[in-house]
Design a protein around this nucleic acid. Sequence first.
DNA 1: GGCGGTTGAGTTGTGCACAATTTAATTGTG
DNA 2: CACAATTAAATTGTGCACAACTCAACCGCC
Lengths: 144, 144
Amino acid sequence: MSEAPRLDRQVCFALYSASKAATAVYRPVLDELGLTYPQYLVMLVLWENEPRSVRELGTELGLDSGTLSPLLKRLEAMGLVERRRSAEDERRVEIHLSDAGRALSARAGAVPQRLADAAGLSAAELAQLHDTLGRLTAALHSAI
Amino acid sequence: MSEAPRLDRQVCFALYSASKAATAVYRPVLDELGLTYPQYLVMLVLWENEPRSVRELGTELGLDSGTLSPLLKRLEAMGLVERRRSAEDERRVEIHLSDAGRALSARAGAVPQRLADAAGLSAAELAQLHDTLGRLTAALHSAI
DNA sequence: GGCGGTTGAGTTGTGCACAATTTAATTGTG
DNA sequence: CACAATTAAATTGTGCACAACTCAACCGCC
């Protein structure tokens, strides 16, 4: 006879809880920037390199156009990005940072430290966690 | 001058990606059971011990009534649970498993193995990941 | 040039997450 | 007992996640 799985034993639930707790720690900081967590992720990618197409953003973040299209519209309504149809390929929409969007980067510099401070783990443990999660995510993706 | 944070360095994004990847691996298995991942979590708690009040489910899963109320209504519509107003405290709603809900437990037994198979990590690494995530989540919660 | 297949973005629909509010039941305290 | 404070659940509203679909632009190939 088959044993019912136990909630507290599941790595999947541990991941789900940790991820929710991490975004909860970020939330008050991001509130001051006027961003949600997924919006912050999009801005992170753009701060690294812009413009980026919707497709490129989706590849980096693992999100599809059904999630990104309305999110980007909200960022545009906030005045942080501009959406421009690409001239070379009219299917593509390029997301450019506005001046306000670029300026927000400076204020966002302190955000990640907030998580590190709250994490209660050593730098080495955080580095190892990051590494393990990266390998786990890669393996899970190749399993789908 | 402040450096813009890098996406690929953030533990937060690693958690977010790993959690999404894990639920993506579960999705086809849970589809066969007719459950979403949060619905599966609720059933896990109930399989351990029932009935449970909405409040108790929320405490175990870190979810509030705004999430659980409609979710439980859907589980009830599927015939997996029954919601009964408690006689001792008429504010409470107790969630009972139906026969079909209890029966589903047997079919769910194989679900966690699916993640372990796809994870590409050793049992020891999985155990350590579970432990680190647990401590991380606890520390993050105490930081809010 | 024409045409089938592919690609990029957007839309629609369902469900989750969470803040804020509402309502009713309970508890604590004078 | 009365009444303020608290608690449990539900509701409302906003935003994310993802499947399924639409539509226009592009590409390959004849």
